[in-house]
């Protein structure tokens, strides 16, 4: 018989992790695998404001962006049947972090600084935080700073030199483990 009782391990999953680890790409495929809706937080904010993220940073400043981000998270927490890919810094806000961790499983994606830089330079201009002289050093510092906070996520998966399918499969398996552990 079809699995009637619990057809999916969760109905609200957030994806966090440093910029360039693959949150948007993986999130979209994860949503497909779990038959859930998908929202990318940065794209959501862009649609809402009519401004691109680099433009928001440039004209309104990071602080204004963080406020919008927090507001958007609060709004989206009310939705269900959703895979939500966060921005790289969203999870750093204690209030958003607490709320997201309480709402459903949070998956953190990881990649090496080299992979992150390689992916970031493919789309120059879209990553405002890396507009510095030594971006690799900048990534290392930021990653080190943020790692203890990222570790608060429930599920951790590496995306270094792996196919999307493979990563999604691992996430789904770990989400089931997480759901079972929580029920027990």
């Amino acid at each position: 018989m079809a699995r009637l009782e619990v057809p999916r391990p969760a109905t609200f999953v957030s994806l966090t992790g440093f910029m360039g680890v693959g949150k948007s790409r993986i999130g979209r495929e994860l949503a497909r695998a779990l038959m859930l809706h998908f929202i990318d937080l940065d794209r959501y904010i862009e649609r809402r404001t009519g401004l691109s993220i680099p433009d928001i940073f440039r004209h309104l400043g990071e602080e204004a962006f963080r406020r919008m981000e927090k507001e958007a998270v609060r709004e989206l927490l009310g939705k269900d049947f959703l895979v939500l890919s966060l921005g790289g810094g969203t999870f750093m806000d204690p209030e958003s972090r607490r709320a997201l961790l309480a709402r459903g499983p949070v998956v953190c994606l990881w990649a090496s600084p080299e992979t992150i830089l390689e992916r970031a330079t493919r789309k120059p201009g879209e990553r405002p935080l890396l507009q510095v002289a030594n971006p690799l050093e900048r990534i290392r510092t930021l990653l080190e700073e943020r790692a203890p906070i990222y570790r608060e996520a429930h599920v951790h998966v590496s995306t270094d030199s792996r196919q999307v399918d493979e990563v999604v499969e691992e996430i789904v398996a770990k989400l089931w483990d997480h759901a079972k552990a929580k029920r027990a």
Binding site: A2, R3, L4, P7, R8, L34, M35
Partner: peptide, 8 residues
């Protein structure tokens, strides 16, 4: 329902 194995 059947196509989605009752995920829907």
């Amino acid at each position: 329902e059947a196509h989605t194995h009752h995920a829907l």
